[in-house]
Design a protein around this nucleic acid. Structure first.
Lengths: 136, 136
DNA sequence: AGGTTATTTTAAAGAATTCTAAAATAGAAG
DNA sequence: CTTCTATTTTAGAATTCTTTAAAATAACCT
């Protein structure tokens, strides 16, 4: 198993140079588990692991990865964008109290009776966000 | 029919004083049609109709109305919040190109097989946003 | 290695939203 | 109607997240 060179290849396939910063961020992101990170959070995590990278680069990298299909951006709140390392078709729980985002596992939710797209448009994606409050 | 005093009563019922600004904004918002406005847009509309009101007040008022259940806030994009005058259970089309938001009429979409809320939480709301791109 | 091009960095600007403290206004009581 | 008190409005400053521009740096290719 050569995870490092796999990541290098993955970046190359997307036309992205495997720079030190991109590699380091990719390693943090694609560690095998599904993650939901904000730019701010990933930046902090990178610094904590000794990776010197600017916040602007983290933003750039997250968007480049998203454009390349390695990440998916989820907007839950006017002031927070999450990037999800799981790009499969799936939906989300949003914990309004803590601000945490979680994947809804498997096929536990599905949209029935999708409407037709208005003339001149096509459906790019369907986002379902289940907002959770603390139990009463 | 006395629409003005109806709005006054509606505000009072929510514990909001029927001030000049709130009444004017309510009149613009609750004109009978379903509307999706941003704070910026409503502010411009108010000024255009000769209502002198500050942007801060528009933000305050939109949030107060939302808390009171007169409006519903929809987040589609990291940089834009819409306020929807239709507070019934319904979902949305989002036109990614133009940034416009539209209600999906009637029961044309429904969520099947809602998952159980994680322990300690309850479902506050389910948001479905169908993102539309220009037809290929 | 050396030239070319892409990427990163930094600092500053930008956009949307929120906060603040003072002035204006509404509702209540006399 | 006037005064009093609490609430609301305002204008501008502050905040937060994100993007930009220009200079510095690193990767790629021969």
């Amino acid at each position: 198993m050569r995870p490092y060179s796999q990541i290098v290849q993955r970046l190359r396939d997307c036309g992205l140079r495997p720079t030190r910063q991109r590699l380091a961020l990719a390693k943090l992101l694609f560690d095998g588990t599904d993650r939901h990170v904000t730019a701010e959070f990933l930046h902090g995590e990178a610094l904590r692991s000794g990776i010197r990278v600017s916040l602007a680069t983290v933003y750039n990298t997250l968007h480049q990865f998203t454009d390349a299909g390695l990440l998916r951006e989820i907007v839950v709140d006017a002031s927070r964008s999450y990037f999800d390392t799981n790009t499969d078709d799936h939906h989300h729980f949003y914990f309004e109290t803590s601000g945490q985002l979680a994947d809804i596992p498997g096929e536990e939710v599905s949209v029935a009776a999708l409407p037709e797209a208005p003339a001149g448009t096509s459906i790019a994606r369907v986002d379902v966000i289940i907002r959770l409050a603390d139990a009463s």
